[in-house]
Design a protein around this nucleic acid. Structure first.
Lengths: 238, 238
DNA sequence: CGGGGGGTTGATGGACATCAACATCTGTGG
DNA sequence: CCACAGATGTTGATGTCCATCAACCCCCCG
């Protein structure tokens, strides 16, 4: 895999015939910068297009009546954004950059048409879209049945695995722009408790979360502790 | 819409050209019965096929190390099952009938190929697959940021809306084979607390949940109380 | 008749939220 | 260059929502 490729290509790479990959990727080479505060979902909805994140992170979230925020999805380079906003009426969901972001936009019907181009591409695109974290049932398992420390550990491991697919992570950790407040709104807990849980995990020498940096001390032990089984993120079918 | 149609056709009906609908639906007319205890997901995984539920309900769930169960998804007539099992390595997820179930099975590549048949079908199939409840971000919102009574109310309203799409619900309620224990494992709470919450909702004259039957007393008030906004389940894009 | 699944209610405890005070660090404008 | 405000992080005290444990109910079915 050469490195002038976009993150999406790095994710799709491998099984797809070379020309088709090039074709598909070339559809939206032209990208644009977006600043913190801009709602990417609104833009997708407005002109029925999707976006492919090239650089930077975004979060998809909803604000409840009482002011609480729930993050649905953390979007990483290579992720496909906006498909939900186009297919459904999610008016009150925002997709907002955490850092400055670079993304390419393309009309939704190009994606939908490309599904017909080849069976392989169809499977790949479906896979890319479904594998975004909101679609990961493990989030539901965590929220429903894992206590806070395991929930945090599991999520950070999952993020690591997702970043790994686009070569933005290594075995010891990764750069992570999330605040403790963000973490709380992702995992359904208060920022204060996130803080205590992180201290706990640090003192038990499992992982360190600090100023945009996640560091794993004992990954094996961590996997066991959080019941993290990375295999569920891998592709089957060919 | 005529009534000799399958639930999936009732969901897809409307925008799709008639011949294409017939063609698509005829692909898997042959169905089969499945009893409680049978793992449909295992069967899908084994021969790389998906299933379309025609009659009865199933649940997709995972058992954790400590024995806790988390239900990922309640599957209703018209839902597409098994796509996740085929695309990913979800070994430890089971799809099990709640009642006796009738489902049609079809090879996954027929579905994937059908995506190319027409833009409309592609959009429809994507929509059908993504709109299964595990893909509904509102579940995450509930688990993360709604207290138990609203969580229960919201879920039961959502179920009603989903059943409505296949004409299995009316304004006052619907038949529902779930136990209180199931409800707890769906929403991440103990069966005991589910019981108390249901009593509370009943005494406040909002809804009644009893022996396989859900009855709404004041749907408007309930929508407001649970912050349920049914529009997010509707299709956009044509 | 006995056993098992589901439901109901009370008592107790724990995990986590909330409130509050304070420390750091950042960028911004005077 | 300093002052200041705002975002983020840290820690303690207090309270509450909900889990857990336990006893008992009904009903169905073998």
């Amino acid at each position: 895999m050469s490195f002038d490729r976009t993150p999406l290509m790095r994710r799709l790479g491998g099984a797809v015939p070379e020309e088709e990959l090039e074709l598909f990727d070339s559809l939206g080479r032209i990208g644009k910068k977006y600043a913190i505060g801009h709602d990417l979902g609104e833009e997708c909805r407005a002109d029925e297009s999707i976006m492919i994140l090239q650089h930077g992170w975004t979060m998809t979230y909803k604000i409840l009546r009482g002011g609480d925020r729930q993050v649905i999805d953390v979007n990483l380079p290579g992720d496909v954004l906006g498909m939900r906003q186009i297919l459904f009426n999610y008016d009150d969901y925002r997709i907002e950059p955490i850092t400055e972001v670079f993304a390419q936009k393309m009309p939704a019907d190009i994606i939908l048409r490309s599904l017909g181009k080849s069976l392989e591409i169809a499977a790949q695109v479906m896979w890319a879209m479904m594998s975004d974290s909101a679609f990961s049932p493990e989030r539901l398992v965590s929220m429903g049945r894992r206590e806070a420390p395991k929930r945090v550990a599991h999520f950070l491991l999952e993020l690591g695995a997702r970043l790994d697919r686009v070569h933005l992570s290594n075995k010891n950790g990764y750069l992570c722009p999330l605040s403790q407040t963000d973490l709380g709104d992702i995992l359904g807990m208060s920022a204060v408790h996130v803080n205590r849980v992180l201290r706990d995990l640090r003192e038990r020498d499992l992982l360190t979360f600090r100023i945009g940096k996640v560091k794993f001390h004992d990954r094996e032990e961590l996997n066991r502790y959080a019941e993290f089984e990375p295999s569920y993120m891998e592709r089957r079918l060919h």
